[in-house]
Nucleic acid binder design. Structure first.
Lengths: 195, 195
DNA sequence: AGATTATCTGAACATCTGTTCAATATCAAA
DNA sequence: TTTGATATTGAACAGATGTTCAGATAATCT
């Protein structure tokens, strides 16, 4: 047996990444073997190396793609107007976007330590770029007198931590609708920044 | 070679737990082998099984001890008075306590998935008990008209996520003193709850 | 001093690890 | 229909994995 009927790299490649993301998120990077990923895809372990040079590169690829999609999704939505409206847009965007990609978000927070120094720096840079997007809003709002904040850097990290926390408990069909959750968090953030 | 001079279970036992915690936090539970832990303690792998029935039990022990110490440390500090003061006490306690035990906190958030269902339920129960401590304050404050909160459960989770986030960036000797950080976070929390 | 208990070694177990590669079957183009 | 590129297998590699246990040494008790 060798090449399988109907085999195409445009199909197998994405499936490898998808199964790897699912398994890494569920069990952790180190706890998942290449053979488990291969089995989930329906292929032998050796075939994975047509799609990644090694295991760490597979993780890095997932994290990098996620962060880039996060940044470009924000770029499409990012408002230019008044800081208060911009902050509300950010809060709702962050909650909604992260909930649709819970696995990738989980990985981005939990598996950074499995990256080598170079790869780590790349992901950290992308994360910092995202944080800067929020801080720009806070700085503008403070300059305009709309927000009362002792420290915009800390406020940035505090708000992002608070919003990302939604991922740990929100389940579709639960007690509160996504819209309600967004509204409640926006209410708390708005008050926290003194607006 | 067999028993070593000066060997005592009261010394080796704690060292096993300490090194395991250090290594698990640094590299992740699945990525650390029993032989690595043993080497860090200065002992052969087989000797670890005098102190734990298996690897998962070692992790469970660390998580359970941490959560119990967290709860009992809070019990010693927990104020009875007015909700606003109680909330400030909680905020400062959470930040300060968690920073002194960064490794254990990290483990408690990251390695839960490596526990079997029974052990998982125990830790989750302890975590919920801690969350309830905060929610009790929020409920009392809302009843007294001191806080304006649409949902105390969400506020509980939001506040804890925000405060725990400090662990990801705070470093001793950094830009801000611990006192300043506490004050800034307390300012944001106080405003967020509408007080 | 001798007997008992506590602590640790070192080898062994079966199985799993990431990765490489020659062989082979299918696909797409000429 | 032949040809070359593409996708996959399956075996192999050297080493690591969690765990057990008989044997050996040190500490402690009588």
């Amino acid at each position: 047996m060798a090449r399988k009927t109907g085999s195409h790299s445009e199909i197998t490649g994405p499936r490898v990444r998808a199964e790897a993301q699912r398994l890494f998120a569920r069990h952790g990077f180190a706890a998942v073997s290449m053979r488990q990923i291969a089995a989930a895809v329906g292929v032998q372990a050796g075939a994975l190396y047509l799609y990644t040079p090694d295991k760490e590169a597979l993780l890095f690829d997932l994290l990098k793609s996620h962060m880039e999609e996060l940044l470009s999704a924000w770029a499409e939505v990012a408002p230019q107007g008044e800081p208060l409206a911009a902050l509300e847009t950010f809060v709702r965007f962050h909650i909604r976007f992260n909930l649709t990609r819970a696995e990738a978000v989980f990985l981005s927070y939990m598996e950074l330590r499995n990256l080598g120094p170079g790869n780590f720096a790349v992901i950290e840079g992308l994360r910092r770029a995202y944080e800067t997007e929020l801080e720009k809003i806070l700085i503008a709002g403070r300059a305009a007198g709309a927000f009362a904040l002792p420290d915009t850097k800390l406020a940035t990290l505090a708000i992002i931590a608070m919003l990302t926390g939604v991922n740990t408990w929100y389940r579709e069909g639960g007690r509160l609708s996504l819209d309600t959750v967004e509204a409640i968090y926006w209410d708390m953030v708005r008050k926290a920044v003194g607006a």
